[in-house]
Write a protein that binds this DNA or RNA. Structure first.
Length: 207
DNA sequence: TGCCAGGCCCTCTTTAGGGCCTT
């Protein structure tokens, strides 16, 4: 597949519209089935980290205060990612924070996101649930580090992405798997996915 | 002052509601 950037944010809350800010970001570049680049940094947006989030992520107020300014980190990571298509687990979440934090440095996103959660719902409907950690275990992928730290989660989302591509190739004979095809599959209903696969020359197994 | 998401999916649906997933 074309080079994609898999990203993950740690934040102070669930919605930038409700005042939540990023505390950490990681981006890994994936090309030809492997990780070819990594970026990770804590960032200081001047936001307070609640005890709940400190417990969840292990990222403390002291760590954030000692981190580089959010604007500097966002400029660096935006340059690192460039115009590569992006991927995240539950991409609607990371996309909102990407757009919000980028907007604060007067930059705009130039590429689309694909979502490993939506893809996994299509490809692994039998998984116990579609949380990143559960899918990593379900697919037999290595645990890259502590869950809810940006680089570990981005690495595991990248592994999951590669596994999902492999499944699309092996089960349905699809290939090459482009970012645009992933977006088409993730936004197809379960029924329409077979039509989508057939349209792209894949084998559709009726069960 | 008090409160605070949003997009997707499924179904006991479509004149809607509730669960999932992210922090």
């Amino acid at each position: 597949m074309d080079t994609v950037a898999v990203i993950d944010f740690e934040t102070t809350g669930i919605s930038p519209d409700a005042g939540a800010r990023a505390t950490e970001i990681a981006a890994v570049l994936v090309r030809d089935g492997r990780v070819v680049g990594r970026y990770q940094s804590l960032m200081n947006a001047g936001a307070w980290v609640s005890p709940f989030i400190e417990q969840l992520t292990g990222i403390t107020n002291e760590m954030v205060r000692a981190a580089p300014p959010a604007a500097k980190v966002m400029r660096e990571v935006a340059d690192f990612v460039g115009a590569h298509p992006m991927v995240a687990h539950n991409a609607s979440f990371d996309c909102r924070f990407w757009d919000a934090e980028l907007g604060r440095i007067r930059r705009e996103r130039v590429q689309a996101f694909a979502c490993t959660m939506l893809l996994a719902r299509r490809i692994y409907p039998e998984a116990p649930n579609h949380k990143l950690g559960t899918l990593v275990e379900f697919a037999g992928l290595p645990v890259a580090g502590r869950h809810h730290r940006a680089l570990a989660d981005a690495e595991m989302a990248a592994s999951l992405l590669l596994k999902l591509e492999e499944q699309l190739e092996r089960r349905f004979g699809l290939g090459p798997i482009t970012h645009a095809l992933l977006r088409e599959i993730q936004s197809s209903s379960r029924h329409a996915m077979h039509e989508c696969i057939a349209r792209h020359g894949g084998r559709v197994r009726r069960v």
